[in-house]
Design a protein around this nucleic acid. Structure first.
Lengths: 370, 370
DNA sequence: TTTTATTCATGAAACGTTTCATGAATAAAA
DNA sequence: TTTTATTCATGAAACGTTTCATGAATAAAA
């Protein structure tokens, strides 16, 4: 049994002691710790409200749920609710309805800015509908993805919004599921940015800003997923604007070094043969910009770089790079809307939301005006 | 009534159409949309398991909860659970126990990296104990902070972990609450990094790396909260190591510009009078480093900068700056541990967890070895 | 063998809701 | 005024658990 000890300080007001925490609970994953929070004054129930208002239980329920009730009854109930500070117990509601009012969000983590921003907006969209969000971080682990989905099928959550990396996930017909960014097949609705238009826009912007020779860089993935459309759109844009272009797409298992080699190989006499680069994500663009500068290339003077996602430093400061911005608030609304909507259409839709370009210091917007 | 329309594309397999979403549901905040997810095959219940195993309901409950049961019974129940793929309905559990198995995390948002990383680790610590996390983003809004706390007092959640900015929050005695980073008074346990030691460490590191004249920069807040200890620790470190130091602490309402002015004023003949700067957060350090470079100061050659928090680009890439790292996994464990522990001590503790220094490119670690 | 003590499975009651069959009260029609 | 139709508040039943008083089965003691 592995035990970890962590030294820390406890200030008991004026006393100062050194203590240690036994981390052996790391071995009790999944075993519930029982009855550890005491409730003393329990909250008022519908019964209390009914007694206070002098009406029947069902009447209170109707008022709470906005169903038609006689005006005088409604008033009395509302007053009683106010007086007792009553709030409905949503767990009893859920038990009756066989619903949990909980939606699972499957994302790799909440540490990478795109994922954490997505979680932020999905959380808002769910709270607006009085749904809870169960945050499920998969760490890109295929086993964990399937486990969370199985959990959902056991009625632990009412639906799943998933940004998953496993094309072979088993999702039962009756489990509401909305995929983000990666289509999961014809039975599952999918919401994504308009990746094709985004790629096209990147090419057009680079052309507008005076580029002639451009490159597309993409980290490895053999999945035929939606971000591949970024490449297709970029290609399309390059062709229509007469840009020379080259693609560097990593295979599974190839590391970032490949890009360094690729860029180094394209430098002759200190001059890079590209004057514009489109990276499949801002995260990649961030690294590429550093590499370019290490290689003595100035960004954006020698080479312009456009990323994809719309990541800002510290969440709200300037953009990490010039970028194609994904409309996260709208994406979140759409995911939740599709998941919770009443009537499923026969054919689950693929929804594409429009992207925009934003300047982030790595393009030369005035170059063609000089 | 404000209505927003959002144009978007829907691909219905091969067809391509333009649609519009009516965003009027923005006006229905808080009104539950009813019965919108259908459940068809309902999950097996304890009753089903009892029937399958040929035992009583209570026996199944005991097995599920790990209470003592005769071996042969236990085996039969376990087999039945396996066969039916039974999972306990935690909402019925919660109804019985008058518990929700839900903990609210009050943070300003999940977009700033420190908050999103904290949420990530708290979420892990809670899931480990089979608790759900209700993410409550307050956007630094004092009203929202109080609303969420009131909600908790209505037994909607079992406890709250709060990073709050309102020293006057009303928290009832029987609402489990753990504060993070900012002490909420003698009745509320508080977990924080060892801010004092962190400030001290920053001063010592700057001294080690050859600095003589240093500054401390802090954004405005009149609250006498824990991060103030960073200043006190830094001061202490400067004194014990013989560093000249100056403080620039913004008042409430003063903007970042003040720092630009402060730094500009301390440049004489192109030379900054500080060779080391300690910033109260990495976010501030990030901006300060940009400002310094704009002012023609090289970092770390002319001036070294140390931040606080341990933020990395994109969550896992290199540190934004040389920094004092907060131990987030341990902080999260401690918050959850204190919140859910069985026996409250009479005096709620203030727990300080140790910080470490990490190199992030804005210090000259070898300077004194040159 | 009989009596007493112990172990432990049993299943009814309860948690706080929603639903819906019932029937009282009112309104409309005769 | 009496009969019929309509409206709508009522409260029991049920959702899936946990708890705990009950008593059957076994073990220990006499």
């Amino acid at each position: 049994m592995v035990r970890r000890f962590l030294a820390f300080h406890i200030y008991f007001h004026d006393f100062f002691i050194i203590a240690a925490v036994n981390h052996s609970y790391y071995n009790n994953i999944g075993k519930r710790t029982y009855m550890n929070i005491k409730k003393e004054s329990s909250a008022p129930t519908m019964k209390d409200v009914a007694r206070e208002a002098g009406v029947a239980l069902g009447t209170v329920s109707k008022v709470v749920n906005g169903l038609p009730v006689g005006d005088s009854y409604k008033l009395r109930v509302e007053n009683a609710i106010q007086k007792l500070n009553y709030q409905v117990n949503s767990y009893a509601q859920g038990l009756k309805a066989n619903k949990t009012y909980t939606v699972a969000l499957l994302i790799p983590n909440t540490v990478e800015p795109f994922f954490s921003a997505l979680a932020y907006h999905i959380n808002i969209a769910l709270l607006r509908r009085k749904y809870r969000m169960l945050l499920c971080c998969t760490d890109f682990d295929l086993t964990q993805e399937q486990e969370y989905i199985t959990m959902a099928q056991q009625n632990k959550v009412d639906g799943i919004i998933g940004l998953t990396y496993n094309p072979n996930l088993i999702i039962e017909e009756n489990t509401p599921f909305v995929a983000f960014d990666r289509s999961m097949g014809a039975n599952i609705p999918c919401v994504s940015s308009d990746n094709f238009a985004g790629g096209q826009l990147a090419a057009e912007k680079l052309a507008d800003f005076g580029c002639k020779n451009v490159a597309f860089l993409r980290i490895g993935s053999s999945l035929n997923n939606d971000p591949n459309k970024r490449k297709a759109g970029f290609e399309n844009g390059c062709l229509s604007r007469g840009l020379q272009y080259e693609m560097k797409i990593l295979n599974d298992g190839e590391s970032y070094e490949e890009f360094e080699n690729f860029l180094t190989e394209h430098i002759h006499d200190g001059k890079l043969s590209f004057d514009g680069i489109f990276c499949v994500t801002d995260g990649l663009a961030f690294s590429v910009i550093q590499t370019l500068r290490q290689l003595g290339q100035r960004v954006p003077e020698d080479v312009q770089v456009i990323g994809f996602d719309g990541i800002r430093y510290f969440g709200f400061k300037e953009y990490v790079c010039s970028t194609i911005v994904q409309p996260l608030p709208e994406i979140a609304e759409m995911c939740v809307e599709l998941l919770l909507r009443e009537n499923m259409t026969a054919i689950p839709p693929l929804v594409c939301l429009p992207v925009t370009y934003a300047y982030g210091g790595t393009t030369s917007e005035n170059r063609n005006r000089e």
